[in-house]
Design a protein around this nucleic acid. Structure first.
Length: 303
RNA sequence: GGUACCAUAGCUCAGUAGGUAGAGCAACGGACUGAAAAUCCGUGUGUCCCUGGUUCGAUUCCGGGUGGUACCA
């Protein structure tokens, strides 16, 4: 199917160099960048998320970065509609848009949509979380087993977040989560070209180490201190912040907190790689090979 | 220089009354549908410092090296 409109995906693990490459592509194609980094959405999280700098923001139009407050509720479905609306608008006067980021789920939903499941009911979530607290994981497992044995059989039964979400949906809809989660791929009215950035692991890990030290030098501690009162917010359950909060608590000393940030960032990068690796549609490039990425996009786009 | 103690996984250490070894952390692999930088699952990766001796068999016992730590000079 021929589309005259194209969405270019640029994904990859944290610290691989996505921001820089995305800007280079945006400048070359005279295009814009839609962020797909679930923590760069929050305007309060700047240093710790390695958000694009004012200088970088000036080099290309960026969407969906710093557009939320940590106090806002947001989820992947809201991201899907926000991003699609922007893409739709941009396609009125250009043929190519770039979506760049490291949040695999968000990119997948942008490309293929997500099942029409009910939104979170906060009072229900609170109620169920309270029961979980009171009765333990076994209770939650038994509930899911009782109302949706199919889901219980196939899911990670130690993952309380998954079980809680499934139980929520069962309560809200009166239906089984496994019947509603059909994973239907939604067609998009534009072409999608998926590119990924890759570096040798040792080099990637060195970059993480160096970038963490830079964050500290740029004032990560101060940024975290200001956010410390809000530490319970989901947006702050984030690498780089939660470890500093433990330092403020006295659980870690500063050196331990820094080491933990490095370890957890490496693990995050590994989880991202696991996610992206299984997507055979991604073509991989070294971040320095901007010309190759451009050639690939031009070639694929004209096919 | 002398005496004592130590040397086992990437790190900190346990252990084997002689039958080639296991914890924590780190590391590695994986899952993933409205919390996703979240959450969860799985995996020991080893010249037991070197070298002789005793023994059917030594990481373990004995001797000698080497390295480290502490104390005494």
């Amino acid at each position: 199917m021929m589309h005259e409109k194209t969405l270019v995906i640029l994904c990859g693990p944290t610290a691989v160099g996505k921001t820089k490459s995305a800007i280079a592509l945006a400048q070359h194609f005279k295009s814009v960048i839609i962020s797909a980094d679930s923590r760069q959405f929050y305007k309060e999280l700047v240093i710790g998320t390695a958000a694009p700098t004012p200088d970088e923001l000036a080099q290309a139009k960026h969407y969906l970065t710093g557009h939320l407050s940590i106090h806002d509720y947001y989820n992947v479905s809201m991201y899907e509609s926000d991003a699609l609306q922007i893409i739709n608008n941009e396609f009125k006067h250009r043929n190519l848009v770039i979506a760049a980021g490291g949040s695999g789920l968000y990119l997948d939903v942008l490309c293929h949509g997500i099942d029409n499941l009910p939104d979170v009911n906060f009072s229900l979530r609170k109620e169920l979380a309270g029961k979980l607290q009171e009765n333990g994981l076994t209770w939650l497992q038994e509930e899911v087993k009782k109302y949706d044995p199919a889901y219980y059989a196939e899911t990670d039964i130690n993952n309380h977040k998954r079980l809680l979400r499934a139980l929520e949906i069962i309560h809200i809809t009166g239906k089984r989560y496994s019947d509603l989660r059909v994973r239907e791929l939604q067609p998009r009215p534009f072409k999608i070209i998926k590119t990924g950035l890759f570096r040798e692991r040792e080099i990637l890990f060195n970059r993480i180490e160096k970038r963490t030290d830079q964050m500290l030098a740029q004032g990560l501690e101060k940024e975290c201190r200001a956010l410390y009162p809000c530490r319970h917010l989901n947006a702050l359950n984030t690498v780089g912040y939660k470890e500093m909060f433990h330092y403020f608590d006295g659980t870690y000393n500063l050196d331990q907190a820094i080491e933990k940030i490095k370890v957890n960032t490496r693990r995050y990068a590994k989880r991202q790689l696991t996610w992206f690796k299984r997507d055979a549609a991604i073509t991989w490039f070294h971040p320095d090979d901007t010309e190759k990425i451009i050639t690939h996009i031009r070639k694929t786009d004209s096919e």
